[in-house]
Design a binder for these strands. Sequence first.
DNA 1: CGAAAAAATGAGTGATTACTCACTTTACTT
DNA 2: AAGTAAAGTGAGTAATCACTCATTTTTTCG
Lengths: 216, 216
Amino acid sequence: MLEEDLILQQLLNEDDILTEKQKKIIVAAIESFSEKGFAATSTSEIAKKAGVAEGTIFRHYKTKKDLLLSIVAPMMAKLLAPFILKDINKVLDRQFETYEDFLRAMVENRREFLVKNLPIIKIMLQEIPFQPELREQFKEHVAKDTFRRFATLVEHYQAKGQLIEMPSMSAVRLSASAIFGFLLARYLIVPEIEWDDETETERTIQFVMHGLSRKA
Amino acid sequence: MLEEDLILQQLLNEDDILTEKQKKIIVAAIESFSEKGFAATSTSEIAKKAGVAEGTIFRHYKTKKDLLLSIVAPMMAKLLAPFILKDINKVLDRQFETYEDFLRAMVENRREFLVKNLPIIKIMLQEIPFQPELREQFKEHVAKDTFRRFATLVEHYQAKGQLIEMPSMSAVRLSASAIFGFLLARYLIVPEIEWDDETETERTIQFVMHGLSRKA
DNA sequence: CGAAAAAATGAGTGATTACTCACTTTACTT
DNA sequence: AAGTAAAGTGAGTAATCACTCATTTTTTCG
């Protein structure tokens, strides 16, 4: 799988136009932003951690906020990654016979994405409420794209008689709550406790299926 | 219902020892912290909004962080409020015959709490990752107290044969994901879209019940 | 190589930061 | 009303902030 899930790698290889110092700046910024928060991190601190002069940061990014956006923005586009499986409705039948199969694939897909990009995701979640640009991007990508595609997909399985009738928006919301509630608890809220990943994953999927499938 | 759900009122009446100026400081701080974030809010800004001299803030609070903690800390204790409904184990049978009844009561209870204290809750969620004191309080109250009481309650309904056998921790996690996923989406993430509250609430409860109850 | 361009530097900018303190105003007690 | 304690003030503090820019270093390429 040469899937480019690692946003960091993607950031650092962008167009091959990034200098070594610039890469170090990005790495240092991600570390500091995720640990202390954007507003509480100073540019001098980033420069020191990156081993560059403070002026170098502003040679590549007009402002500190610019640096933040250059890190977080690529994240947004990737949020809908699991739904770009080409022409959804047509390929779906062969790829995922049941909603359950789809759910299972999505949990694993998003789990890998989350684990690989944890610090950037933390920054994103922290700053979305305060950066209008990020809020807008989030609504664009998540609300419009991802959510709608997810909904289309649910309608597909409803039409096949697998899922109970219910506004697809609600079905998506319930599915997403269960899945991301699990992933967030597992990797962000209480990662320090012992988790039986396989069991909890399966339980979560079965929980959703019991809640949404036609044949109880 | 003279339930003291409003943390703000509680803060302002504390011991009757708060001066008028101090109350204005708290109100102004809550507003600024929730809008711009703790680190991005200056004490001069709070003073201006409160209509007091900047020195007055530091007469009552040693540091800016002290002010933050005095606002958010009382929140924590209230997070487990729905579980202090008198002596759980004993009153339970007569109060909530079914898990469904309990869920319904909890959703309404937490919904009111969330709506009434939205700004303070936003501040809390934002700052928990960065303030060790808050992290600790959160784990103490939520993990130890609330989660455990919730689990005890689930075990009660499992023993009555209403819920399927499953580690109570998992059942609590799944229930909480669905409920708080709903409430967060409704009031924090996308409050601007139209919600049919009654229908969505009921759907959420039924979703949990289908996922966890014995008789499908 | 050598010249031009790009990258990097770090001292310096004014503004802003959280916080202090000597002092004034207000409130309370008798 | 006088005396005392608490509350409030705002100019002042050193530190730090994001950002600039003249200069130096490195890279590119004919």
